[in-house]
């Protein structure tokens, strides 16, 4: 089994062996056979605030990239969890739905949804991955800091 690769970027502990959706701040782990796991990255968590509720769409539902995979609630604010790839929901992590605080404790240890990526999907190209991950994430952190979204 391959070991996870980590780096500290912009004050956040990041897995550098995963792919990332820059818009929704979701991480994507390829499981093989066209299946991926999806979770929230640390920046996505910080922007949303303390998670009070999570809900996922039912297993078997097909979603297109950018459509809601589910929803989260923090600070009485409900927002969508956007699919980073088009696919069919193969599994949901009911443990984190019952206890959203687990995601805050360990964002990379708590996946939210598994997707069977749709055949022929070309959206992979839009994910950030490989050597470009640390630089991209550092830029994102700086951009949010410049906007005053994150504390220095």
């Amino acid at each position: 089994m391959e070991r996870s690769q980590w780096a500290k970027v912009g004050g956040y502990r990041m897995r550098t062996d995963l792919a990332y959706d820059s818009e929704g701040h979701m991480w994507v782990e390829r499981l093989g056979g066209g299946r991926v796991r999806v979770g929230l990255d640390p920046l996505g968590l910080e922007i949303n605030g303390t998670l009070a509720q999570l809900a996922m769409i039912p297993v078997g539902t097909e979603v297109q990239r950018g459509e809601p995979l589910g929803s989260l609630e923090a600070e009485k604010f409900v927002g969508p969890l956007r699919a980073p790839l088009s696919g069919v929901v193969a599994a949901t992590n009911d443990t984190v739905v019952e206890n959203p605080g687990l995601v805050e404790q360990d964002p990379f240890g708590c996946w939210l949804v598994e997707l069977e990526v749709l055949p022929g999907s070309v959206e992979d190209a839009e994910l950030v991955e490989g050597p470009s991950v640390p630089g991209w994430f550092a830029e994102q952190v700086q951009e949010y800091r410049d906007k005053g979204v994150l504390a220095e």
Partner: peptide, 9 residues
């Protein structure tokens, strides 16, 4: 609105 939920509120 700000990207941060807290700031938006």
């Amino acid at each position: 609105v700000p990207a941060s939920r807290g700031q938006a509120l």
